[in-house]
């Protein structure tokens, strides 16, 4: 138990080395792929707490994330591009999130939805024994969405923002 899961991955998370760049690097192709990736963000069906309900609302009729191509919720991480961490991550859940993130194929992105996923939210007491103070400690996060829980519009905005960043090649996954 010399090194803990969270410290190693934190180092990985910060660096670009989490992704190995493709063998063939050809700028127009890369641009085209980035454009396609931006417009087809399939989220992983994955809700932990309150925010998950707002995530569901964002995919329901009124907000309809499918308009932006982000409505195809995939249950298997193997087919998902976007992990939306919606809810409080505690120390029992953290290894699972790390595992799911690893199982997703590259390039992949993470949205931390809600205060709990950002920093522990209302459960951020100094001596809280259960709640991980921010999901960034285990997986690299691209977009943080504040709120408790954030409104569905906020999630849509985050998706649009992520799309812009993917197109401009400035996310954790496509920077390499």
């Amino acid at each position: 138990m010399s090194e803990s899961l969270q410290s190693t991955s934190h180092e990985e998370a910060g660096a670009d080395t989490d992704h190995i760049p493709p063998i063939v690097q050809f700028l127009p192709l890369q641009k085209a792929l980035d454009l396609a990736r931006a417009n087809s963000l399939w989220p992983l069906t994955f809700g932990i707490a309150c925010c998950a309900i707002e995530m569901m609302a964002a995919s329901a009729s009124r907000y309809d994330a499918d308009r932006f191509g982000a409505g195809v919720f995939r249950n298997s991480p193997r087919q998902a591009d976007l992990m939306i961490v919606a809810g409080t991550v505690n120390l029992k859940m953290a290894p699972i999130i790390k595992r799911l993130y690893d199982q997703m194929p590259s390039p992949k992105w993470v949205i931390a939805l809600g205060s709990c996923a950002i920093c522990g939210g209302p459960f951020d007491q100094d001596d809280n024994y259960a709640v991980l103070q921010g999901v960034e400690k285990i997986v690299p996060v691209d977009i943080f969405v504040p709120g408790c829980p954030p409104r569905p519009e906020a999630l849509l905005h985050a998706i649009l923002e992520l799309q812009e960043r993917i197109k401009s090649g400035s996310t954790n996954a496509t920077r390499a």
């Binding site: 290894p95 001596d127 259960a130 103070q133």
Partner: peptide, 20 residues
């Protein structure tokens, strides 16, 4: 640890590797 004991005052959040 047993968190609801009154003499428990928090513990650092460490996830050991052998949870796999």
């Amino acid at each position: 640890f047993h968190p609801l004991r009154k003499d428990f005052h928090g513990a650092p959040i460490v996830i050991p590797e052998d949870t796999v």
